[in-house]
Design a protein around this nucleic acid. Structure first.
Lengths: 160, 160
DNA sequence: GTATGTGCAAACGGTTTGCAGAAAT
DNA sequence: ATTTCTGCAAACCGTTTGCACATAC
């Protein structure tokens, strides 16, 4: 659990749920609160489930799945697929217009992010050259994060 | 089944299997042949299984899984994860140095490819800025392919 | 009051695995 | 002869679904 919980965000999300004709149940509230209060964490559904249960022990896993799918359809969260078999979800922050990407450490599987509209020029080339209308993109870099690189260096030094 | 079957490729692959200490069974042969003869097709394991069974009806699905995992470890095939729950595999062609990406049509789920080392400059920026050592990357564009766009246009015209 | 949402447990679908027999080296 | 591989069926694991009850509106 990290990141600053923003009452503004919670309002925005619950409002949109309402407007779209969905009921604002305590379960959904709890899930929204939890997922917002852990920005930057890329939670699996199980992880989210565990966190939500701290506040709402009666909640069922299926409800978490259903809510997260719903929120994804509404564009409130975005799904992230690493290569490890379970989907991850994170809040979509309003400020950014779909231009954030992921750095995935293959040692510790930590996920960090980087910003930038670096792809825009590439997209234009593609659209013209291949007559392909781009709606969305996914850019991921796999490699070794700073912490793991440091650790490795330390080990090497000890061996010398 | 499409693409030109290259005897050279088959040799290269079977050779590498041997050298790495793996036995060259008829099952593996059949799988290698099939996957090579369908370059550009991004097969799911089930699809590959169905194709291989045309030549080797006794083969088991588990063998196909095991072979494809093995070949992936050896770098002979690459795994492609779309958002549809099943992994796809394609031959890794020697000519290209990991610089090919995917265009995925969200209408017909056809997958096409595009080449280009467009990411290299971006990678350097990232490596410096975030102290992240990049080993691999994945770039995918989701959208509407040329054929589907045409189809849509046709429908619109009929409605007018 | 009614439509929608929930919890539970069972089903699902892609993938992996344990095992006994088969085959490559 | 020995190690590796195969086919089968069962297990696995993340996810989805059917259902009877509960609840937000």
């Amino acid at each position: 659990m990290q990141g600053k919980l923003s009452g503004e965000d919670i309002k925005r999300v619950t409002e949109l749920l309402r407007k779209s004709g969905y009921k604002l149940t305590p379960q959904r509230q709890a899930i929204v609160d939890t997922i917002i209060s852990s920005v930057g964490n890329h939670l699996t559904v199980e992880e989210l489930y565990a966190l939500v249960r701290l506040k709402k022990p009666e909640i069922g896993l299926a409800t978490v799945y259903r809510t997260v799918i719903l929120m994804n359809e509404l564009g409130l969260v975005s799904r992230l697929d690493l290569k490890d078999g379970s989907a991850r979800y994170e809040m979509t922050r309003i400020e950014e217009n779909h231009t954030h990407h992921h750095l995935i450490c293959t040692r510790c599987s930590r996920v960090s992010e980087f910003m930038g509209d670096l792809l825009e020029p590439i997209e234009h080339v593609i659209e013209e050259k291949y007559n392909f209308i781009i709606k969305d993109h996914s850019l991921k870099f796999y490699g070794i994060c700073e912490e793991c690189a440091k650790e490795e260096k330390l080990k090497e030094e000890k061996l010398v």
